[in-house]
C-alpha cells in the first residue's frame, strides 16, 4: 500500500487538493445560502416564508447525486461548466438546505425577548437579526453546524461521478489503472479521516465546553 501511494502520490495529493477546495467553497457557499434561507423562513413576510420553505424541502429531499447530475448534465447544456463546478454547486445547494434548517432552529431557540428588545430600542427587524439574534443563534448551533460540515466533506465524494478530480475520482482512476480494487480506497479513506477526524474531535470538545458553560 505504501508503494501504491509512492507511485501515485501526485494523483492522491491532487485529489486531496480538489476535495479540500470543493469542501471549502461549498462550506462558505452553503453557510451563506443556508443563513439567507433560514432568514426567509422567519422574516415577517408570508411570500418569503413560502419560498424559503419550498427551497429547503425540495433540496433536502432530493438525493445529492441527482442535484449534482442536474448541474452536470442539464445546466452544462446551457453554460459550459466543469465537473468540479457542477459537483461543488450541487454540494453547496444540497448542504445549504440542511444548514438553513439548523440555523432556523438556532434562531427559534433565542428567546423572543431579544428581538423584541431590539425592536423596542428602535432597531429594524434586519438590524435586530444581524446584531442581536443571529450571533446568539450561531453560537447555539455550532455543534450541529460542525456535523453538517463533516457530512459535507464526506459528501464531496459525489464529485467522482462528474469527473470532479477529487479524492474519490482519483481512487477510481488508480484502481482501474492498477487493477488494485482495495488499496486506493483505503488510502483515500485515510485522507478523508485526516480532514474529518480533527473536526469531529473539535466539535466534541466544543460541545463539552458549551455543556459545562450552560
Amino acid at each position: 500500500m505504501l508503494s501504491l501511494f509512492q507511485t501515485h502520490a501526485h494523483d492522491f495529493l491532487t485529489g486531496f487538493g480538489w476535495t479540500i477546495a470543493s469542501s471549502v467553497l461549498a462550506l462558505i457557499g452553503s453557510l451563506i445560502l443556508g443563513t439567507v434561507f433560514a432568514l426567509m423562513e422567519v422574516v415577517p413576510n408570508k411570500a418569503a416564508n413560502i419560498i424559503g420553505r419550498i427551497y429547503i424541502e425540495v433540496l433536502r429531499n432530493i438525493p445529492l447525486l441527482v442535484i449534482t447530475m442536474f448541474f452536470y448534465v442539464v445546466i452544462a447544456n446551457v453554460v459550459k461548466i466543469s465537473g468540479f463546478a457542477a459537483g461543488t454547486l450541487g454540494l453547496t445547494l444540497y448542504t445549504s438546505a440542511f444548514i438553513a434548517e439548523t440555523v432556523r432552529a438556532g434562531i427559534n431557540a433565542v428567546p423572543n425577548g431579544q428581538l423584541e428588545g431590539a425592536l423596542s430600542n428602535g432597531l429594524s427587524w434586519w438590524q435586530g437579526m444581524r446584531y442581536v439574534v443571529l450571533p446568539q443563534a450561531f453560537k447555539l448551533v455550532i455543534p450541529p453546524l460542525g456535523n453538517q460540515f463533516i457530512n459535507l466533506i464526506k459528501n464531496s465524494s459525489v464529485l467522482a461521478f462528474v469527473a470532479g478530480m477529487d479524492l474519490m475520482y482519483q481512487a477510481n482512476m488508480i484502481s482501474q489503472e492498477t487493477f488494485d480494487t482495495f488499496g486506493p480506497f483505503i488510502i483515500v479513506a485515510i485522507f478523508y479521516l485526516i480532514l474529518t477526524m480533527p473536526m469531529s474531535y473539535y466539535m466534541r470538545y466544543l460541545e463539552n465546553k458549551l455543556n459545562k458553560e450552560g
Partner: peptide, 25 residues
Amino acid sequence: MVFQHFNLYANKTVLENIMLAPRLV
C-alpha cells in the same frame, strides 16, 4: 419599552447594549 424580563442583548456588554441603537438608528 422596558420589559418585565429586561431583554438586554445577551451577546453584548452593558455599554454595547446602550450604544447599539443610537449608533445604528
